[in-house]
């Protein structure tokens, strides 16, 4: 059992295991803090800055990203102060300037009372939360995509903007994207992700296209089982 600590969030006393983040502790206590880049399957990242909260430790009050900052005994957390809301409103307005259509963003904007962004909108779609890049690296383990450029030119990209040789077409990036920016479709035995085509494997028994060939090759490689083992779909195995 992890050691428990006691902190207050919005005046409520909360017990949480040491080592958890404020965001996790708040979520467990049914206290809502908006967030976009945080995902419990991924290492804390702290990039979107929506989940900022104001903390007081001793004399000092400051803003921290709740998805990174770990709980501690006696920590006082406020999730809705004026300073916090000022940051969140700016962040959502800035994100709306990249994508003012997606319901997930509009919902957060509504909650914050932001009707429209003050900034000129340049539809880019992607909000650079990095969940796709991090999932590919931390969960899938292939690092087929990464970031290119810096500052405002930062983009999620494949190496040299070409066909990503390490991509296994698993579609995890598509799945985790909070704004459904990465398109994926399957047609005639081919899975297409963001314009790149990957042939699918036909099940040796039922004949159904069930998984990308590259993903099965990857499974074979990491499990040390023969590729044939994976050429039958789970239903027929």
């Amino acid at each position: 059992m992890a050691e428990m600590v006691t902190l207050t969030i919005d005046g409520r006393e909360i017990n949480a295991p040491a080592g958890t983040t404020i965001l996790e502790a708040a979520t467990d206590a049914n206290i809502y803090i908006p967030h976009l880049c945080s995902n419990e399957e991924l290492a804390p990242y702290g990039a979107c800055r929506l989940c900022m909260v104001e903390i007081t430790q001793g004399e000092r009050a400051r803003l921290v990203a709740s998805c990174i900052f770990e709980v501690a005994d006696g920590l006082e957390v406020e999730t809705n102060t004026e300073r916090v809301l000022n940051v969140r409103k700016l962040v959502i307005e800035l994100l709306l300037a990249r994508n003012n259509k997606h319901p997930a963003l509009r919902k957060i904007a509504d909650e914050l009372g932001v009707k429209e962004t003050r900034f000129p909108v340049e539809q880019k779609g992607c909000i650079l939360c990095g969940q796709c890049v991090r999932t590919c690296r931390e969960v899938v383990g292939v690092s087929a995509i990464g970031f290119s450029g810096r500052g405002i030119t930062r983009k999620v990209a494949t190496p040299f903007m070409e066909f990503p040789p390490d991509c296994i077409a698993c579609g995890s990036c598509v799945y985790v994207c909070p704004v459904q920016f990465i398109p994926m479709k399957e047609e005639n035995g081919v899975r297409t992700i963001k314009g790149f085509d990957y042939p699918m494997q036909k099940c040796s028994k039922c004949g159904r296209y069930f998984a990308p060939k590259k993903q099965l090759e990857y499974f074979s490689k990491i499990t040390n089982l023969p590729l044939e083992h994976f050429e039958t779909c789970v239903g027929c195995r």
């Binding site: 702290g46 979107c48 929506l50 962040v91 800035l94 650079l128 810096r150 930062r154």
Partner: peptide, 15 residues
């Protein structure tokens, strides 16, 4: 020079 990781710096400074 902003690295582009966090929203306020990347987008805010740009705006």
């Amino acid at each position: 020079e902003s690295c582009g990781k966090c929203t306020p710096c990347r987008e805010g400074v740009h705006q």
